[in-house]
Write a protein that binds this DNA or RNA. Structure first.
Lengths: 201, 201
DNA sequence: CGTCTATTTGAATGTACTCAAAAGCGGTGG
DNA sequence: CCACCGCTTTTGAGTACATTCAAATAGACG
């Protein structure tokens, strides 16, 4: 993975949303550093204070939380051009609530909190960009919340397949179950049922 | 309710987070307008495009969504000094996903999308303020999400009581049930059970 | 090839749900 | 002031969906 190429990918992402001068682009590029993550390696680990966030250049990450009954709950899968991190922990010394783990060999452009603050000073336009990104994220999470409380596991599963075509090839089934908020056994049974239904038609 | 007093309340809220010049404070104050909402009146109605959001000056609102099975799900209760609105609908012509309804006679300082955009131009510091507010909101919703998928209804109930003392006096029980993601009947039974347990001790 | 992990299947259980009805509470009008 | 009405809360009986615990099968990786 080429560092310049990775940073160009990030700049393309930003340029699609706001316009930056050459100088500003340079400052943005300098603030991030490229890092490789091997499969199963952690970018963030729950319980540890953490003051960095990252842009996914390539690969896949799962962002999840482990509850007090030791159950894992996937919040989302981080693919190319997504951001991963724990905003509460990024902005203070609060221990991270989330885990971010590579599901395959992957590359991140990571940034430290101090660097990001400096970047906001140097390129104030970014305040707006990240305000809007955060708002979008909030909207997506709201939808996910209402789907979780208002729809059956089967509806949630079908919605996921539709919204994220090909996800079954990318992510093992027990982690899809974790995303849906059910156990792997339940997903297995549900898939069998759905097959029956479709054969019946 | 005095308009000047209401706007001073908003400015106090902002001044606790960032510092504004007299001139900037004036611009902020001018962008908002005070409006009364009688009990049960709607500030936002699901399905209608809506391009305004608001700061709660006094009273209580419930922010909820009605799913395709006609079930109401409360996302949060908006008390004094909270923001209410639907960010996706505020920022585009997408119909609102949320309802915002007054639970008692209440006052809001509302702002139109165009006014807010103008305000961001005039007072760029606000980009940062609202970026941070949105991030905090996201963190709170994340916690709520994991509590919903990871904890029992009883745990969620006890957590709510602890985090929001006195809420049982402010909000009818069937709406607390809706916030918890269970039916009123289930909450009633749960409370009975909790009473038994406590008597047992 | 063997080991470890993921998936499937089975049987019993539990938590919250549905439907139904009674009891409680609060506000309104006579 | 009290009787009535509508809405909220409680209680009951039966049900559904996903869970738990357990074991077998399948698949991936070294």
């Amino acid at each position: 993975m080429d560092e310049l190429q990775a940073k160009q990918q990030l700049l393309n992402y930003i340029n699609q949303r706001i316009s930056l001068t050459e100088d500003e682009q340079q400052k943005v590029a300098n603030a991030f550093q490229l890092k490789q993550f091997k499969k199963k390696e952690y970018f963030l680990e729950q319980g540890r204070p953490n003051r960095q966030e990252a842009f996914v250049v390539s690969g896949t990450f799962r962002v999840f939380h482990i509850d007090n009954k030791s159950m894992e709950h996937v919040l989302y899968f981080g693919f190319k051009d997504w951001w991963v991190g724990d905003s509460a922990s990024f902005n203070s010394d609060i221990p991270s609530f989330l885990n971010v783990q590579a599901m395959e060999d992957s590359w991140l452009l990571q940034i430290q909190w101090e660097e990001k603050e400096k970047l906001y000073e140097d390129v104030p336009k970014l305040e707006r960009l990240f305000r809007i990104i955060t708002m979008r994220t909030l909207t997506v999470l709201q939808k996910r919340f209402f789907l979780t409380v208002g729809a059956s596991a089967e509806e949630r599963y079908l919605e996921l397949l539709e919204r994220h075509q090909g996800i079954e090839q990318l992510v093992p089934q027990h982690q899809i179950a974790s995303y849906l908020g059910i156990l792997p056994e339940s997903l297995s049974r549900m898939k069998k049922q759905l097959l029956m239904k479709n054969k019946g038609i």
